[in-house]
């Protein structure tokens, strides 16, 4: 029974970690820029939800998610259009990454200035304690909901990328930007759309995080590192890989927390680092 409970917790946290990573996987895969402000976008998504609920306590969760998604998507487009796109024109790819590092510092401190440095959680009423029973198995409703939303988001993203005209353009652009432009694809517009989608996914992850535990304006760094680890382990631009890597890291966190309660993300980082070293030694890193 305890094993099943543990497995379930790992599964839900893993889905959440996958959500944290998939936005970064998308933007890194298409734009070829590691967006170091991704952690801040996740945190801002969480705080947008906190703000909406405190203004309108009866707002349905779907609307909260939609609001956070749109808010962060707008922010993502603005960042891409005003700064990152320009930085991508330089020959050195690190310039764009440094720009996103600067943007991350701006966003983090702007968040501290506007909401204070305190921890906040999302008030979800009785949902936090509610449980449902499946054939004698009692599972928390909230983790189930989290897992459901995560899987829906993954499915929706996969449909968008593999089944629509927009997705075709995105993949073409990622393969060969120059030829894609010959095909009439508007590169800057697709970049902005990808930035919006990536930031919107970050916001969804943020809302799910805030339902489960408190977030502070300084949580961004931890979120960014998880996202990065998910992307590296799962493969750049791979949606399925992001889910798999999220599950591995989520399981690691849940199991390690059982043995060592106050280690933060230490074991997650360690597992990542060990895999990295093993890959480095076996030469499976390019």
């Amino acid at each position: 029974m305890m094993m099943i409970e543990l497995l379930f917790q790992g599964l839900t946290l893993g889905g959440l970690y996958g959500m944290i990573g998939v936005g970064l996987a998308l933007s890194f895969g298409i734009l070829r820029v590691v967006n170091l402000a991704q952690g801040e976008l996740i945190t801002i998504g969480a705080f947008l939800a906190v703000g909406m609920i405190s203004l309108f306590p009866a707002l349905p969760l779907a609307l909260v998610l939609a609001g956070a998604f749109l808010g962060c998507a707008a922010l993502g487009v603005a960042m891409q259009a005003l700064a990152v796109e320009r930085a991508m024109a330089f020959r050195d790819p690190m310039v764009a990454m440094l720009v996103t590092f600067g943007l991350a510092v701006i966003l983090r401190n702007a968040l501290v200035e506007s909401v204070g440095a305190n921890l906040r959680g999302l008030d979800i009423g009785g949902l936090g304690q509610a449980r449902v029973t499946f054939g004698g198995l009692s599972l928390g409703l909230l983790p189930l909901l989290t897992l459901g939303i995560a899987l829906l988001s993954f499915g929706g993203l996969a449909l968008l990328i593999f089944r629509t005209r927009f997705g075709r353009q995105v993949r073409a652009l990622s393969d060969r930007p120059e030829i894609a432009e010959l095909m009439g694809i508007r590169i800057r517009r697709v970049h902005a759309q990808v930035a919006a989608l990536s930031a919107g996914l970050a916001a969804l992850a943020g809302v799910l995080l805030a339902m489960r535990a408190s977030v502070s304006p300084f949580s961004g760094v931890a979120h960014l590192l998880i996202a990065f680890e998910v992307v590296v382990l799962g493969g750049i631009g791979s949606i399925r890989g992001a889910l798999g890597a999220g599950l591995l890291l989520g399981m690691t966190q849940v199991v390690s927390a059982r043995f060592d309660g106050n280690a933060g993300l230490l074991y997650v980082h360690l597992v990542f680092f060990v895999i990295l070293v093993l890959r480095a030694i076996s030469g499976r890193l390019s």
Partner: peptide, 21 residues
Amino acid sequence: PEGRLLFDSLTVEENLLVGQS
């Protein structure tokens, strides 16, 4: 183009679709 430069993340049909204007 020289070297064909096809989009390999797309299927054959998707390559044709993406070429449409």
